[in-house]
């Protein structure tokens, strides 16, 4: 928990501080206060579910289930975690249940999974780390990141999402997914290598198109 919250930037932490009175008001029966919490956090929950499940229809269901679950279980929110962290944990559990259900229905993803080959380092590497998309994320880059993560095999996609997108610690991921920390780290490493490769192609092409 501690690490996930350290992952938040200062404005997010300030925003979280402002959640506490809203949670208290919602607990006292003020539905408008709960609506404010929903409006504030719906994007994080929705895109978490989108990346997790790769299907908008499922992500919309998870969004509804998560906030309904949060509303009904608000009294169990103890405030030792941030409200957003608590919500993302509910969403993650709902996503995992949905994945199991989808598997029983034998749904097959139409996305071609990316091949992961992390055994050798290419000799020529373009350093695109100084790319100007630093200041505020461009929508084109954001879209590309969504497409890239969607191409990862499910086991690696979920670990990358929980660690690098949502800021969970390796320990929390290990507990949530029921696997060892070593397995989490290994999947994360391979996922990051694959994402770096895809992003390298993307930034190289952008450079070529600029010329």
């Amino acid at each position: 928990m501690e690490k996930a919250e350290k992952g938040l930037n200062s404005s997010e932490r300030d925003g979280e501080d402002r959640d506490t009175p809203l949670v208290e008001r919602a607990l006292a029966g003020d539905f408008a206060a709960f609506e404010q919490l929903v409006k504030k956090h719906q994007a994080r929950v929705f895109y978490h579910a989108m990346k997790f499940l790769n299907r908008q229809e499922d992500a919309e269901d998870i969004l509804q289930e998560t906030f309904l679950h949060a509303f009904k279980g608000l009294s169990s929110f103890r405030g030792d975690a941030l409200f957003l962290t608590w919500l993302l944990k509910i969403a993650t559990n709902n996503c995992l249940m949905r994945l199991r259900k989808n598997k029983k229905m034998d749904l097959i993803s139409l996305d071609k999974p990316v091949e992961i080959n992390g055994s050798e380092l290419p000799r020529e590497i373009m350093d695109w780390s100084q790319n100007p998309s630093d200041q505020r994320m461009e929508s084109e880059t954001r879209e590309y990141l969504d497409k890239a993560i969607a191409r990862l095999p499910e086991d690696k996609r979920i670990v990358l999402l929980l660690k690098d997108v949502e800021g969970f610690s390796n320990q929390e991921i290990s507990q949530t997914l029921g696997m060892s920390v070593a397995a989490v780290k290994s999947r994360l490493h391979r996922a990051r290598l694959a994402m770096r490769d895809l992003l390298s192609h993307y930034f190289e092409e952008r450079e070529i198109n600029k010329k």
């Binding site: 992952g7 994080r44 978490h48 590497i125 373009m126 350093d127 695109w128 780390s129 790319n131 998309s133 994320m137 880059t141 954001r142 990141l145 969504d146 993560i149 990358l160 690098d164 997108v165 949502e166 800021g167 990051r192 290598l193 994402m195 770096r196 992003l199 390298s200």
Partner: peptide, 13 residues
């Protein structure tokens, strides 16, 4: 570029 990859996903979240 690996560091930047991780940062971009942090930022996307």
């Amino acid at each position: 570029t690996m560091r930047k990859t991780v940062e971009l996903f942090n930022k996307a979240g």
